[in-house]
Computed example of a mutant assay.
Amino acid sequence: MTTPQHCPGFEQFKDLKSFTCQCPECGKDNEIFSDEFDKTHKCTSCGKPIEFSKCTGAK
């Protein structure tokens, strides 16, 4: 039996990009990852919906 050199789930996440978008309501920065674009998002501060497809600035 061999020990993996990294976490077994690593491969599916190694190419993820993070994006930060400012909430249009309260101004708080919110972060999502590129595999979450098809999900709905709410601000972590005020709970209002955020449209990340309109944001720029991939890290």
Rank of each mutant, 00 (worst) to 15 (best):
Met1Val: 05
Met1Lys: 06
Met1Gln: 07
Met1Phe: 04
Thr2Ala: 13
Thr2Gln: 12
Thr2Lys: 13
Thr2Asn: 11
Thr3Val: 15
Thr3Tyr: 10
Pro4His: 01
Pro4Ser: 01
Gln5Ile: 11
Gln5Ser: 07
His6Lys: 11
His6Phe: 13
Pro8Asn: 10
Pro8Ile: 02
Gly9Tyr: 08
Phe10Ser: 12
Phe10Lys: 11
Glu11Asn: 14
Glu11Asp: 15
Gln12Ile: 12
Phe13Thr: 10
Lys14Leu: 08
Lys14Asp: 03
Lys14Phe: 04
Asp15Met: 04
Leu16Lys: 13
Leu16Glu: 11
Leu16Trp: 10
Lys17Cys: 03
Ser18Tyr: 14
Ser18Phe: 11
Ser18Met: 15
Phe19Cys: 05
Phe19Pro: 03
Thr20Ala: 13
Gln22His: 12
Cys23Thr: 09
Pro24Gln: 06
Pro24Lys: 12
Pro24Cys: 00
Glu25Ala: 13
Glu25Met: 02
Lys28Asp: 11
Asp29Thr: 06
Asn30Ser: 06
Glu31Ser: 12
Glu31Arg: 14
Glu31Met: 15
Ser34Ala: 07
Asp38Glu: 11
His41Arg: 04
His41Val: 03
His41Asn: 01
Lys42Leu: 09
Cys43Arg: 03
Thr44Val: 10
Thr44Ser: 14
Cys46Gln: 06
Pro49Val: 04
Ile50Gly: 03
Glu51Ala: 10
Phe52Asp: 01
Thr56Pro: 01
Thr56Glu: 15
Gly57Phe: 04
Ala58Arg: 13
Lys59Asn: 12
Lys59Ile: 11
Lys59His: 13
